[in-house]
Amino acid sequence: MCETCGCGDPEIVPIEVQERILSDNDAQAGHNRSHFKGLGVLAINLMGSPGAGKTAVLEATSKAAAGRLKLGAVSGDLATERDADRLNAAGIVSSTITTGSACHLDARLVHHALHHFPSGDRDIFFIENVGNLVCPAIYDLGQAANVVTLSVTEGEDKPLKYPVMFQKADLVLLTKVDLIPHLDFDVAAVEDALARVMPGAKMLKVSARTGEGIDVWLHWLEERRPAAVDRPPEAHHEHSHEHQHEHH
């Protein structure tokens, strides 16, 4: 109550918070990151428009890495398990996170999927996000790097139209480059657009169809793999290390 004049009005006080609204997601992402680190696995958050070629790039990656690297993936999908089925068929151990109407993955969904993942000995783990150039950029999932696929049929101006997504990218994969001879696509224009929204812009040209550039992409991944960890034989996705689960 107001004690100054005794008017009986309730007193309104300011409570200082000064914290990120998504601090819960940030904490969960940090937890996921420690899982990945503990397992010695490189986690990649793969984003891009629907149809940009995320799944096709992973299929081609699996083909090129066969016998050398063990790949895993979780695919965010609104309604189907088609991507995970395709990836499993391509030799990538995969599961689906069905998001219903949600347009992005968050750290809690990824954490849940990790606990139910069928394999704990992967070298590289791809989190194939929901096809969307807006929402997924906002949520940290615990990845080591963000990779954004941009297909040549989407147009050179996409980085300028969706700056937040490209600003957060560590690498852009320009996909379907085998189609360039059939299109009026200007590679220099997309490079210029990227340089205006993505600090230290880095783009690789790939074609899942012809295999062009997939070796360079694989090299980029291998350079980022964490130093080998001593995995106890029982190390599995149910992790032996201690951690807290404070899900609200």
Partner: peptide, 13 residues
């Protein structure tokens, strides 16, 4: 790139 809750004004005895 801020998404921050700065302050809450509430009735709090």
């Amino acid at each position: 790139d801020e998404i921050i809750l700065e302050r809450i004004e509430m009735e709090a005895p």
